[in-house]
């Protein structure tokens, strides 16, 4: 049976059946590495992030990179036409991806991206939201929870004031955004399970 890699951070879902598992993995890793580096560069620009301990910077990035990438690349999921653009530029319909073995994660990603895009956030609001996603004091392995918590609170306050200023008649937007945080956690968990399954196979 053919193998597919239905992650849009891949250049294409097709996997060359002649390549070894290690080669497939290395090629995949090569395609998502620039996006991960972008997240790190983004994190470095969050005021206060570089003042956290090196250990906590790494822990936050390890735990949160996938969630930041989901927000950053939400526009790759075309809800109306039910398709996904892969990093190689090619679009694939949800039905085609289903036949390649995509499951609940893809459906959940669509639900999430649709709701996020419907909020109509500006680029600045989206960036601040990504900073809030990344700087979460309840990630595992954080050694200085108080420092991360203090930075998280500052970022949440900044996000609230930006949203309130930009959308004075839509007070629910801020609440809706905060409610996206547990949704992202859940996507992250589903994604980790799929990665494990991929590595095992």
């Amino acid at each position: 049976s053919r193998m597919y890699l239905v992650c849009p951070m891949n250049m294409s879902p097709q996997v060359d059946p002649h390549k070894s598992g290690q080669d497939v993995w290395e090629e995949f890793s090569h395609s998502f590495t620039p996006a991960v580096r972008e997240v790190v560069e983004f994190a470095k620009k969050i005021p206060g992030f570089r003042e956290l301990s090196q250990h906590d910077q790494v822990s936050l990035l390890k735990a949160g990179t996938f969630e930041v990438l989901v927000v950053r690349f939400a526009s790759l999921f075309h809800v109306k036409e039910r398709s996904v653009t892969f990093l190689g530029g090619q679009k694939y319909s949800v039905d085609a991806l289903r036949t390649m073995g995509s499951g609940d994660l893809l459906s959940s990603m669509f639900d999430f991206c649709e709701k996020l895009m419907n909020l109509g956030l500006s680029e600045e609001e989206m960036s601040l939201f990504m900073a809030v996603v990344l700087v979460s004091a309840d990630r595992s392995g954080i050694e200085n929870v108080n420092s991360v918590e203090a930075l998280q609170e500052t970022l949440i306050r900044a996000l609230r004031s930006l949203i309130t200023r930009n959308h004075p008649n839509e007070s629910a937007i801020f609440t809706k955004l905060l409610l996206k945080l547990p949704d992202l956690r859940s996507l992250n968990n589903m994604h980790s399970e799929q990665l494990l399954a991929f590595k095992v196979h």
Binding site: S29, V36, V40, L61, K62, S192, L196
Partner: peptide
Amino acid sequence: FNDPASNLGLEDIIRKALMGNLEERQE
């Protein structure tokens, strides 16, 4: 399983990007 980021090689990419790639700088 508890640390998918390490399994992926993510931690290595993150550390290198955070610290700055020494080799690139030397070039």
